[in-house]
Design a protein around this nucleic acid. Structure first.
Lengths: 226, 226
DNA sequence: ACAATGCTTCGGTTAGCATCGAAGTATGAA
DNA sequence: TTCATACTTCGATGCTAACCGAAGCATTGT
């Protein structure tokens, strides 16, 4: 029996190509069925089932039974954050798969990171919130100021609804393309959802790309400085 | 040929128990030799060598040749950050295991590194020489200034005798306990020898420990600032 | 010169695990 | 009930990579 440190188990889980494909697919934030994940990973459903049970017992994903389907999603924000930071490191080390398709620039500009906005747009929003003192970072903990709270409520977000949750309101997440931080946590999710509702942006189906509409881009730039 | 996403390669690198042990050992910030890492990982040096070359070509660690040793350290802060986040996730999932204990305190304070002084004393001496501009480091090359030369000669060391040797006069050596540098090279050797001659310190037989006498400690602190 | 130390490379063995076919369970539809 | 879909479990196979012994290379010390 081989005993390694804690991170070895996590690394081995992420280290298998099939499982890594599944996890990156789940980074879109959508819950996917076992069959869908199998085709994403390019393996049969039996193999996928084996992988999924390992990921589940490893605490990386969380199943939700619904009818005769099982929907899988990432276990929590921390898992998404770790995967994001791993992608960032991989990109920096030049091991990035060089499929320079048209998708790549779009991914860099705006994409979902599990359930919040990432990419240049996400970094821009984060910086804007910090320079205007809506967000302050003290002792590595992010806090929303009173003025920030007012700003967010002006956008039409119900803060009290979020703060009841045990999930942290504000959290910084290291970006994959830029090496800067963007906003994660409940507020990050709420903001992205609000952008959808306002018609500023929409998801490109089947990918992690977030497409901003013409009016949405104008409004976003006006709101988060240029 | 199996092609997975970028993070799979990183995951696989971290996923092997031996490599994970090496990486966690390097998380201390210290640079370690291949042999030390082998014993940390519980494998033979041949196996360790194979692992280390993989970690190096994966961009996770960075080698630094020094004499007949190769010191390895984490490539950059980003690698440490990713490992840290992985440990955090593993701890959260409850797979945490406590790790290696401390080493001999006497060794940390003052010891020989081949033939020069290492440990906290060595680092202190090195820092003192640099802040007083007796040593300057340009382009990763250490040079003794004129004032430094005078200072060393005042201690009773014959510089001209050393400079004839093909061995470099000044060389920085990465410390084992602190992760700072100390002075190696012909001058480092000469200084330690001079300490012996002056009766400031003596070797503890059979070990690498250097014991300072009471008077020697006072003189050392006076000479190299405290 | 010679020996000793630190590390790497080569070759062959072995263990683990991903993989898929086939059979089994569960849910939903006709 | 009977069939179809979604998924899991079992068993067998095959490939990868970790592992160590032995030999080779490089540096240092005597």
């Amino acid at each position: 029996m081989k005993e390694g440190p804690d991170i070895a188990r996590l690394g081995a889980l992420i280290g298998d190509p099939a499982r890594a494909n599944m996890l990156t697919a789940l980074m879109s934030g959508k819950a996917l069925t076992a069959s869908e994940l199998a085709s994403e990973a390019g393996v049969t459903v039996q193999t996928a089932s084996s992988h999924l049970s390992k990921l589940e017992s490893g605490g990386l994903i969380h199943p939700r039974k619904q009818g005769r389907h099982r929907y899988f999603s990432l276990a929590d924000d921390d898992v998404g954050g770790v995967l994001e930071s791993l992608m960032g490191l991989a990109a920096k080390k030049g091991h990035m798969r060089t499929r320079t398709g048209p998708k790549d620039p779009a991914l860099r500009q705006a994409r979902v990171c599990y359930n919040h906005l990432a990419g240049e747009r996400g970094v821009q929003m984060f910086d804007s919130l910090k320079t205007r003192k809506f967000l302050v970072e003290t002792d590595e903990v992010l806090n929303l100021t009173k003025r920030g709270r007012a700003f967010v409520e002006d956008l039409g977000i119900d803060i009290s609804n979020l703060s009841t949750n045990r999930r942290p309101l504000c959290k910084s997440c290291l970006d994959w393309s830029a090496r800067r931080s963007h906003l994660a946590g409940a507020l990050g999710t709420a903001l992205l959802d609000r952008f959808y509702d306002l018609g500023w942006a929409a998801r490109e189906p089947g990918t992690r790309i977030v497409n901003f509409t013409k009016n949405g881009e104008v409004a976003f730039l006006k709101t988060f400085g240029g």
